[in-house]
Structures are given as structure tokens and as C-alpha cells.
Design a protein around this nucleic acid. Sequence first.
DNA 1: GCCATGACTAAGCGCTTGCTTAGTCTTTGA
DNA 2: TCAAAGACTAAGCAAGCGCTTAGTCATGGC
Lengths: 223, 223
Amino acid sequence: MLVNMTDRAPTRTAGRVRTYDALAIPLTDDVTETALRLMEAAADAFADKGFHATTTRDVASRAGLSPAGVYVHFASKEELLFSICMRGHTAARDMIVDAAAAADSPVDALAAIMTNFSRWHAEHYRVGRIVQYEFAHLTPAHREAVMGLRKEIDAQVRSVLLDGIGRGDFVIDDVPHTTLALMSLCIDVARWYQPGIKRTPAEIGETNGRLGLRLAGARWAAT
Amino acid sequence: MLVNMTDRAPTRTAGRVRTYDALAIPLTDDVTETALRLMEAAADAFADKGFHATTTRDVASRAGLSPAGVYVHFASKEELLFSICMRGHTAARDMIVDAAAAADSPVDALAAIMTNFSRWHAEHYRVGRIVQYEFAHLTPAHREAVMGLRKEIDAQVRSVLLDGIGRGDFVIDDVPHTTLALMSLCIDVARWYQPGIKRTPAEIGETNGRLGLRLAGARWAAT
DNA sequence: GCCATGACTAAGCGCTTGCTTAGTCTTTGA
DNA sequence: TCAAAGACTAAGCAAGCGCTTAGTCATGGC
């Protein structure tokens, strides 16, 4: 991985902080309950106010700590944002890989990806907005790490499309652009979804599953 | 309109500031060159750094003024953001209304809307990002004004779809959701577009025009 | 039991930020 | 011509902000 959090100067907290890998994903179950609580608090505050308008005091108090307590577990406010982005993208990547692996055909795989990814963005629209809107506040190295995961997601979807084209299930002029368009349907749910609207996340997922097949020119999608 | 900038307490600058209407759109050609310059500078800075991380000093210096100079023309930093959002949305609304009016059929109207709106988001991806990502920093009243324009845009697209359904040109299960999906294709271009990529804004527009007709289940779109 | 480590705190640092105030200079209108 | 208005400035205010430092307390290992 591109980033190693041991870059941080050794302090009394170095041993604990180093239990994370660069993905800020727990390697084992020994991630502290406090660090998790901080990430959740930060996600909450960032979603409410945006990254820069969120103070570390706000994050700390939401997590029930003093302001300096944040720095026991994270090197900086940006590191908190990075952790949230990496967790979100890793979850999305895994979901897409699993959906594709479980499907019997490219058509099923695409429908499952669209359905699940769209539902996820509705259910997690707040994290989805953070991940999109606050991306520019990451350090260049951290942005690169996040882009790596985005590219994996893109590549997985693209390979489903190519497989479907190969089998004659999809009719697509421009695969890269169609991939982007499919991803747009899913990702943009985070922008327009809000709790209380008539459609449930599951319904949104299903509708986008069908619409995605239309975009791919799936044979039976036009009816 | 919901908001009237004359709410601001009278100062020596009240006369000048009141030449804007609540849309922050120039009513006549007497908008000052300085105010325009400030809006452009703010858009630049907001796109680079985000709203909250942008200082009024930064905006002022980009516009060639002292920090206090911003307040001669705008009541607050937020008012600058509001102006930018309203100008962007008004331009988009007008573009969509014009495209629909110039078309001979719902199919042509939808293709034109998708093509032009997508191209606009590529060409103005920085303003597009500001408008999406910084929306939450507007005051509630200003957000409501912006939402009003968004609803007009949505309604225009929806009426094209309904017209097409009525003529048998489109096959759509869920009109509101399909409207959102069509808008997602266009709006999300601002997220993924960056200068230097292979596709030009015009090409992106054309491809999205075709993909939009697929989403609408246009009869010949599947071939 | 003792010492080292880790989790956490209160206090504070040095700097920044949106905005205001009191002024100067230029332009406009009577 | 003169006064008022408008465009703008330099200076400053009050509050805030990410982060550091020096300390306390609890836990775990020897």
C-alpha cells in the first residue's frame, strides 16, 4: 500500500495506532472501541457540516472524549476522513466483487451490482456524500489510495460488461463511458436520496437494476 | 422570490447592492464589473478548496481587492456562494427549457436535453461541483430558492417523458425515478470529468444523449 | 509490588478567520 | 462648484481552530 501510518513519529501511542494497516481497516478484532466510535462520530459530523467546517472539538464531544482525545487514535483530522473513505470504498468494492462472483451470467451480475450498489448508496447516503464531496480534502497520497479502490470498482464493472458483450448479451458502443454512466446511476443516489421519500432503498436498488440493463442494451431490457 | 437581499441593513452600499434581484442575476447591464469579478474569483476558490476552507482574503485577492472589498458588494461569504448557485441553476434551467422548446418531438427533446446538459457539466465541472458539494452551506432560505430551480428542471424533463409516453415513443415504468436517473447521468459528469481525458465535452454529451434514450425505452434506442 | 505503557485530560499555543470600523478618494448629480 | 454617494482601503476585533504539552490514572507484565 501507498501509505503507512507508521510514518507518524513514535509517541506513547505508537503501539496502539499501528494496529491499523494503511487501509485503516482493522486487521484483527483488536481495533479499539474508542477508535470506532471516533470514526462514527466524525462521519456524523462530516455529513452534517462538511469536513472543513467540522471541528475536532465537535468530533471529540460526539464521541464522548476531550478534544485532545482524537489525537490518541488518529494523527490528524484528515486521517479520520481518510479512514472513513477507505472503509466506504472497501465495502463497496467487496460488495461489487461478491455480487459479480455470485452471479451465473453477465446479465445477472450487472443487475446484482446495480441493485446492491444503488441500495447501499441510499442506505448510506451520508457516507456517500462525504466520500464524494470531501475527497479533495485528503492529502495527495491518500487520494491516490482511494482512487486505487475506485479503479478496482470500475474495472470489475467493466469486466462484466465485456463478458456480456462477448456472449452477445449486451450491446454497447462505448464501454468506458457506459461504465461511468452505470456508476453514475448508483453513486448519484447519495445526492438525491433522503429519508422519508416514498421509494425504499430496496426499491431504488431494483429500479436501478432494471435501468442499468437498459443502459447495457441487454436484449430483453427494452420490453 | 423567497429571498430579498434588501433584508440587509441599509449602509452606504445599499443602493449598489440592490441592483441585484434575489436571484443574484443581473436585472440589467448595470451589474458592476467588480461584483462579477468577485463571483468569478469566489467560484475559482470554492472549486479549488471548498466553501468553508476558502477565506474571504483569498477571494478578495483573486479579485484584486482588499479583504473588506468583498463586503462592499456582497453581504457575506455565503451570499457569494448563493449567487454562484443561482446563476448556475438558472443557466441550466434555461438551457433545458430552450432545448425542449426547440425540439419537434419528445425523443428529440430528451436527446437534446441530455446532450446539452451533459456537455454543460463537463465544460463547467468546477461550478457543477460547487453547486452540488457546497449546497449545504447555504442558509435554509437560500437552499429553498435553489431547490425551486432544481424542481423546475426536474419538472421540465418529466413533462418531456410524459409527452413521449403519451405518444408511445417511450416505455417507462417509473417516471419520477427515471427522471432522476436521467439527471444523474448528466449531473454526475461533473464528478468524473477532468480536462485532458480522451472524450471531449461534446462527445460526452452525445453519448449521454443516446444513453438517455435507452433509459427512456425509446423504441429505436435498443438497436 | 513495581514499573512501563496506553488511554485520556486540562490547559494552552500560535495562528487564522469573517466581518466591522473609520477613513480616503473618485464620481455623480443638482 | 459642492455635497453626497459609492468604491474601496488599512487596521483591527472577537472568536475560533488544529494540534501540542504536561500531567493523571488504569492496566498489564515481570
